[in-house]
Design a protein around this nucleic acid. Sequence first.
DNA 1: TTCCAGGACCGGG
DNA 2: CCCGGTCATGGA
Length: 280
Amino acid sequence: MGQNFTYKVDNCNLTVENIHCLRLDYALDCGQSFRWEKNNGHWQAVVGSHFGDLEEIINKDGTINITFYNCTKEEFESFWIHYLNLDKDYDEILSCYKKDKYLSKAIDEFYGIRILNQDPWEALCSFIISQNNNIPRIKGIISRLCEAYGEKLPNGQYSFPSAETIAKLEPEDLAPLRAGFRNKYIIDAARKVADGTVDLDKIKKLPLDEAEAELLKIKGVGPKVAQCALLYGLGQVDAFPIDVWVKKIMADLYPKGLPNCTKGTRGIAQQYLFHWYRNK
DNA sequence: TTCCAGGACCGGG
DNA sequence: CCCGGTCATGGA
């Protein structure tokens, strides 16, 4: 059970039925991705070279459909399933978490959070920008970065600029982003990714500690940013970013550490606990 | 005005 | 190794 969704194509749109554990309001706006916007009930963003235009519909029986506007079967299968992790059985993972007092509360309130499979470079760059910063400003900086150096799509939206594009710039060139001291970090990351000093594809397959060590070669990437990049962009579901909130959660609620049931998927537990604790 | 935001760097002890 | 100050920016 859990991931046995079905979908049908109607004209240019594609509707997915019987989706378990995905609420767009949570998954797309829980501090893991900074480009999604909700317009008239539609969640919209450029992701890679794709423009996502998603709408969630709650049926009378409580089940949830999601319509992907202007989306082909091929695009859905080759891209969106992986991006949204639709083939991962979250119900099975969460059913195990429910034995824990606080995780079960977080799940009751925020069922539908998912870890996205974002582009490695975009996730890395975004979380470099996130350091000592707040979410509205992070979104603004990333938006200006895309407008300045991304590719303009036919619909007028901009893609996230490649590491190769950013690598050719100097920190001063990024002044209009108003990212402050992070400019030099963005450039250093882009250059090391572009020239292979930091090989993101290789890092995907490394054990967590070795993967983190590779990312720490970048100036401006510490443990927190590295774990975020690993969790949100490099497919490492056991990555565990510790920010001020998670630090509080661990001290207040889990002085002896997270329960065993989170082993292997600690990043998912982290996301539920983070969102729950921050919102209360 | 001061404080704070999903941190990291740097210097000194 | 660990500690505090510092770093840009802008909203509260």
